[in-house]
Structure formats: C-alpha cells, structure tokens
Computed example of a mutant assay.
Amino acid sequence: MIILAATPIGNLKDASARLVDALSVAETVAAEDTRVAQRLMAGLGITNRPRLIALHDHNEREKAADLVELARDADLLVLSDAGMPTVSDPGFHLVEAAAAAGVTVTALPGPSAVLTALAVAGMPTDRFTFEGFLPRKPGDRVALLRRLADEQRTMVFFESPNRLAAGLADIASVFGAERRVVVCRELTKLHEEVRRGSAAELAAWAAEGVRGEICVVVAGAPARDADPADALAQVLALVADGVRLKDASAEVADATGLSRRELYQAALAARR
C-alpha cells in the first residue's frame, strides 16, 4: 500500500510514534526532498536506511505510475518536507493514480500547519476554506482575491515571507483595510509568532521584513442582507440547469443565510 505520513512542521517532538515506527521499518520512502528525509531520520535517531526516491512537483506525474506498481508488492512510505503530503505538497497525483489502479492508500495523521494556524487564530473554525499559496504575480493574486471577496468562511493561506507584505496589501485593497487578519509565523518553532490586526496594519508591519514559514488566516466577509426574491431566482435558475430543488435550495441558503425550508417552499409555489 501507499502510506502518506505527516511529518513535523517545526518541532521534531511532534513526530508521532507511528511515524517513527514506519520510518524504522520502511524499505522504500518517496520524499519531497531526500536530504530533508535523511535529516528527519537522523533527528529522530532512526538507524534504518531505506531506499529513498525523490518525489516532487517536477517529477511526480512521470513517476506516479511506477511508484503505484511498486506499492502493489511492498509498502511505500510518502513524506513531504513538513506536514501532510498532498496538502500544497507533492502526493496528489500519486494518490490519484493509486486510486485509479486499485492500490490501497492510507495515512499516518500528524502535524498540519493549516489546522494549527486555524486553531490559534481565534477566528470561526466551524466552516473554513484553505486556499494554498497566493499567486506570485500581482495580477493573478488580485484576481483570486476578488473571487474570494464575498467568501464568508474563514480563509487560510500559505505565503512566502518575501511576498507577505504585497499579499497583505492586496488583501487590504480587495477585502478592505479593516478586514481581520492573523499572521502565524514559524509555528511550533522556537521563534513562533502569532500577530493579529487589520489587513492594513499587518501589511505595514510586514513591509519592514519578515522571515520564516508563514500562514495567513483571514476573517470571512460579513454576511450581507439577502434579497429573498433574488435568492428565489437563483434557486429556480439552478433547478433549470438540472440541480435538484432540495440541493439548489440548500446551496442558495448557505450562500445567503436565508432559510432552506422557506426557499424550498417558495420555489415549489413558483413552479405551480
């Protein structure tokens, strides 16, 4: 089978007992960076020397099929540099190929920068969206943020320290200068820092220079007063496109904050 193993995002003591056991007996390890994998094993005091195969963004598509075949006969342990493989890290194409080929995929849960940042941010956690890294190019970044301008769920992003100030400035410009933001830096490490403020305040702070691994947590957009007539029109349009009335009512209700039952009943009446 293929075993996706979460690795520490900073503090080696966060390595799970299952990760240590798996590394101690693994015969083959596919790692985002084999040097990082070697340092991890050394830091954990593991003397096992498995076969190491590089699996990164530039070669995953071409290697996926061969690795899946390898995993038919023996376990393949998959590591990213930090956190869970496939989450803004290599592994997705491998898992996709394994699922298509009927090869079992399992995971050894563990540290997650996304969930750690979300937990310490102090923003709603019942519903959230992870958006990965903000685009490098300013135009692409602004375009993405505009698509997210009405997103009411808490949003979590990864960001490079070199682009943090520009990213926060764009968030302030598109979402509004007062939108609440939390920047989580060097989570679980010696110099961990959680800084809270408005988008404009944190953009000014980041302009002075920031180092380390960064997660940015952004408050969702405030709910807007929904027009029931417009919401009903949205439901009917979805139904006309082939969506079940129940599902259409639920989708529009989630987006507008209106009652699912009332939208459903109004749509039924409008169709009679």
Rank of each mutant, 00 (worst) to 15 (best):
M123Y: 04
R127W: 04
L4P: 14
T125Y: 06
V120R: 13
A26N: 05
L4E: 09
A64M: 02
A42S: 15
D140A: 15
P124G: 00
D21I: 00
K137T: 08
A5E: 02
G45H: 11
N11Q: 11
A71Q: 08
V36W: 13
A101K: 04
A98H: 06
D89F: 12
A65R: 03
G139V: 01
K137Q: 14
R49P: 01
A54M: 03
I2R: 13
L67A: 11
R141F: 04
E96V: 01
R136P: 10
V68P: 13
F92H: 00
L44S: 06
G132Q: 09
L134H: 11
T47G: 14
V105Q: 05
I2A: 00
S24F: 02
H58V: 01
R49T: 10
N48C: 06
L134K: 05
L55F: 09
S80C: 05
A117D: 03
A71G: 01
R18H: 13
L118Y: 01
A97G: 00
K137A: 11
A119N: 15
A74C: 13
S88H: 05
S24L: 01
D75S: 15
L79W: 08
M41T: 00
G139A: 12
D140K: 13
N59S: 02
F130T: 03
A74G: 14
T47I: 07
P111Q: 13
D66T: 08
A6W: 08
I53W: 08
G139S: 11
D89T: 12
V68E: 12
V25K: 11
D126I: 00
R136D: 15
K13D: 15
A113N: 08
N11I: 08
L79H: 11
N48W: 11
A100I: 02
L67F: 05
S16R: 07
V95T: 00
P111A: 15
S24H: 04
L76T: 01
A26E: 09
M1P: 15
A42Y: 12
T28F: 05
R136M: 07
G91M: 04
